[in-house]
Design a protein around this nucleic acid. Structure first.
Ligand SMILES: Nc1nc2c(ncn2[C@H]2C[C@H](O)[C@@H](COP(=O)(O)OP(=O)(O)OP(=O)(O)O)O2)c(=O)[nH]1
Ligand SMILES: [Mg+2]
Ligand SMILES: [Mg+2]
Ligand SMILES: [Zn+2]
Length: 569
DNA sequence: GCCGTTTTCGGCCCGACTGTTTTCAGTCG
C-alpha cells in the first residue's frame, strides 16, 4: 500500500537528514517523522486523497510534503529522496538500530573512521579506533557491543497479548519491593496499542528509599541485564529479551507522571506546547504556573488545568483528541461493563477446545446475558466446519442446553465462510435458522476482497462481517479492500462490522473503526474464543474499540438480548 | 517541514542517565 511505502520514505528521509546534521533541518526532520506516523494510520489511501484534492487537509501535510506525495504517486519516486539516499552509505539505516548510537555518533564514526555499516562499526571497536574518538571510550564501546547483541530483541515490537503475563508478573514482583506503594502500566500498553516496543511501569513510593527500590527492581530474578539505572528511572531487559522501563515518583506526583509516561510522545509534545504557549509548563512533575505547581496528583487535574476534558489513554495519539477535549467533545467511550454478551465463539463442534456447555458456563460467569456459538461452516474443513447434518445435531444439543441454563441464552450461530465468489457457504433456508450469522473471509488473502464482502453483506441473513481485514499481526497483512465501499454497504444494509478481540487480529483496525463510525456503521466486539479462557479477551477488544472512539450506542452487543434481536437485520 | 495554541512569522517539550567531560553532549523516555 502506498501509504506504508510513503511512511517508510519519510522516516528514511528524516534519518538521512539527522545523519547529515544540518541544525537548520531540525524541524524539517520532525515534520517528516510526524507525517510518517500520520500516514501510517490514515484511514484512506493517499492516492484517493490526491484524486479528491483533500491531501492538504491532513494535519502535518503542507505544501512541501504534498508535492512529494504527488510526485511519488505520479513518478513512483521522489527526487529529493533519491538524491539524499545517494549522499549517504546504505548502512546508516542499520546503524540507527544500534542502541546508544544516534545521529551525532553515527556521523562522527562515518566522517572520522569511514564507518558506514554495522560490520565496519565492529571493526572500529575491535581495532580500538572508535575508543579514541572524542567523547567515546572503552565503556561506550562495550555498551555498543552489548547493544549490538540485543538490538534485535529491543527493536522488535510484540503483540500486546503476548505481554499480558509479563506485565502482571512484573507488577506483582515490584509491589513486594520495600518502599513502593503503587505500580501501574503506562506507555503503549496502557494505551492499548496493538504492539508494544517495551513495557513501561510507573511506580510511586518513598523517594528516600529510591536507591533501595531500584536495586530491588534490578535484582528481580527475571532480569537479564540492566541498561540504565538511576534514582527515578531504571531500564532492564528480561530473560526473554523484553525491555522494561520503570519510572519512580513521589505519591503526590503520580498523576502528572502517569500522564507523561502514558504518552503518546506526540500527545505529550502537543500538550506541553499548549501549556508553554500559555506561559505555563507541563512535565512529569506537574503542571506549573511559574514556580508554583498547580496540578500533579491526578491525571484528571492535569487535563483540567489545561482547560481540557479528561482524555482516556486509548485516545492519546495526537490525532484530534486534544482539540476535542478543548471543546469538551470527547464522547463517553464504551466500557467493559456495558458488554452484555459475545457474538462470536467456537466450541468442540468445530475447532474450539471446549464444549458448548463449558463455554456457556464461562460466559455466564462473566455476567453475560447471551453467547453466540458460531462454529465454522462446511467449507472450512481444516477447522471441522459443520455439514448440514451436523448442524442439526448441534442445534439439538443447543436447545437442550438452553433449557438447562438459567441465566444465559446460547444463541445458535455460525461463522460462515464467504466463498471466493462472494456467496455464503450455507443456503439461505439454512442461514435463516440461525440467531447469529457471522460471515468471514478465510481464503484468498492476496487479492482484493471488496466485492466478495459487498456481496456477502447483501445477503439478508448475514448479520456481522467477521475480522473484516483478515490480518494476523506480524504474520499476515490485511488483504486489499476499499473501506469506503465496505462502510457504505454496511451502513446501507444494516450489516454489523466486527471488532475482533483476538490479539493477533484486533480487526477492524482502530483508525478504520473511527472512520466507519463517521459512516454510521455499527460494531460487534467479539472475542472469537476457541477456549473458555479467551472469552476474557473481550476486555482487550473493548479497549481496542475505545481507540476507535466507540461509544455504547455504536456497539450491538451492548444491547440486551431482545433489543439486539430487533437491531440485527 | 508545518501551523495558527502567543504570533500568518516565529515558534516547534522537557527531563533522566551515562561517560567523559572539567562543565556537558548525546541518547533516550
Ligand atoms: N514528553 C515526552 N515524553 C516522551 C518522549 N518519549 C517518550 N515519552 C513518554 C511517552 C511514552 O508513551 C512513554 C514511554 O516511552 P516509550 O518509548 O516506551 O514509548 P511507548 O510506550 O509510547 O511506545 P513503545 O510501544 O514502547 O514503542 O514516555 C519524549 O520525547 N517527550
Ligand atoms: Mg513503551
Ligand atoms: Mg519505554
Ligand atoms: Zn474466522
Amino acid at each position: 500500500m502506498v501509504n506504508q511505502e510513503l511512511a517508510k520514505i519519510f522516516n528514511q528521509m528524516a534519518e538521512i537528514l539527522e545523519f547529515l546534521g544540518d541544525p537548520s533541518d531540525r524541524f524539517r526532520i520532525r515534520a517528516y517523522q510526524n507525517v510518517a506516523l500520520t500516514i501510517e494510520s490514515l484511514p484512506e489511501s493517499v492516492e484517493k486523497l490526491v484524486a479528491e484534492d483533500r491531501l492538504r487537509k491532513v494535519k502535518g501535510i503542507g505544501q512541501g510534503i504534498a508535492a512529494k506525495i504527488e510526485e511519488y504517486i505520479e513518478n513512483g519516486e521522489i527526487e529529493e529522496y533519491e538524491l539524499l539516499k545517494r549522499a549517504v552509505p546504505k548502512g546508516i539505516f542499520e546503524l540507527f538500530t544500534v542502541p546508544t548510537l544516534g545521529p551525532k555518533r553515527i556521523k562522527m564514526l562515518h566522517d572520522q573512521l569511514g564507518v558506514g555499516s554495522i560490520a565496519a562499526l565492529k571493526k572500529a571497536i575491535a581495532d580500538g579506533s572508535l575508543q579514541k574518538l572524542p567523547g567515546l571510550g572503552e565503556k561506550s564501546a562495550q555498551k555498543m557491543l552489548e547493544g549490538l547483541e540485543i538490538s534485535n530483541s529491543l527493536t522488535e515490537r510484540r503483540s500486546i497479548g503476548t505481554v499480558f503475563l509479563a506485565v502482571k508478573t512484573m507488577i506483582a514482583a515490584l509491589e513486594k519491593c520495600e518502599g513502593i506503594s503503587r505500580v501501574v502500566p503506562a506507555g503503549s500498553f496502557r494505551r492499548a496499542e496493538e504492539t508494544v516496543g517495551d513495557i513501561d511501569l510507573l511506580a510511586s513510593g518513598d523517594m528516600n528509599k529510591s536507591k533501595k527500590i531500584m536495586k530491588c527492581f534490578r535484582d528481580l530474578p527475571l532480569v537479564e541485564r540492566v541498561l540504565v539505572s538511576g534514582e527515578t528511572k531504571t531500564s532492564i531487559v528480561t530473560k526473554d529479551g523484553l525491555q522494561v522501563d520503570l519510572r519512580l515518583v513521589a505519591p503526590d506526583e503520580f498523576g502528572s507522571a502517569l500522564q507523561y509516561f502514558t504518552g503518546s510522545k506526540q500527545h505529550n509534545v502537543a500538550l506541553r506546547t499548549i501549556a508553554k504557549a500559555r506561559g505555563m509548563k507541563l512535565s512529569e512533575y506537574g503542571f506549573f504556573k511559574g514556580e508554583k505547581r498547580v496540578a500533579s496528583k491526578t491525571e484528571e487535574e492535569c487535563y483540567a488545568s489545561l482547560n481540557m476534558q479528561y482524555i482516556p489513554p486509548e485516545l492519546r495519539t495526537n490525532t484530534g483528541e486534544i482539540q476535542a477535549a478543548q471543546k469538551h467533545a470527547i464522547p463517553k467511550l464504551i466500557e467493559l461493563k456495558d458488554i452484555r454478551g459475545d457474538l462470536h465463539s467456537h466450541s468442540k463442534w468445530s475447532d474450539g477446545a471446549n464444549t458448548m456447555e463449558e463455554m456457556a458456563l464461562a460466559a455466564e460467569k462473566l455476567g453475560y446475558e447471551y453467547l453466540a456459538m458460531t462454529d465454522h461452516s462446511q467449507n472450512l474443513r481444516v477447522a471441522r466446519g459443520l455439514s448440514l447434518e451436523r448442524l442439526k445435531e448441534k442445534k439439538k444439543e443447543l436447545d437442550a442446553l438452553n433449557k438447562k441454563l438459567k441465566k444465559i441464552t446460547i444463541l445458535f450461530g455460525t461463522e460462515v465462510d464467504i466463498l471466493p465468489d462472494g456467496s455464503i457457504d450455507y443456503p439461505d433456508n439454512i442461514l435463516k435458522e440461525f440467531d447469529i450469522v457471522v460471515a468471514s473471509v478465510h481464503s484468498r488473502f492476496n487479492q482484493d476482497n471488496t466485492e466478495r464482502i459487498i456481496k456477502a453483506m447483501q445477503n439478508p441473513y448475514v448479520h456481522i462481517i467477521g475480522h473484516p481485514s483478515g490480518r494476523l499481526i506480524g504474520r499476515r497483512k490485511p488483504y486489499q479492500i476499499d473501506y469506503e465501499k465496505i462502510f457504505k454497504q454496511a451502513a446501507n444494509t444494516g450489516t454489523v462490522l466486527e471488532i475482533n478481540s483476538q490479539y493477533l487480529r484486533l480487526d477492524l483496525q482502530d483508525f478504520y473503526i473511527r472512520e466507519a463510525k463517521r459512516w454510521k456503521c455499527k460494531f460487534s466486539i467479539d472475542s472469537d474464543s476457541h477456549t473458555t479462557a479467551s472469552l476474557e479477551l473481550m476486555e482487550l477488544g473493548v479497549r481496542w474499540a475505545r481507540r476507535g472512539w466507540c461509544e455504547k450506542k455504536d456497539v450491538v452487543n451492548a444491547l440486551e438480548l431482545e433489543k439486539l434481536r430487533k437491531a440485527l437485520k
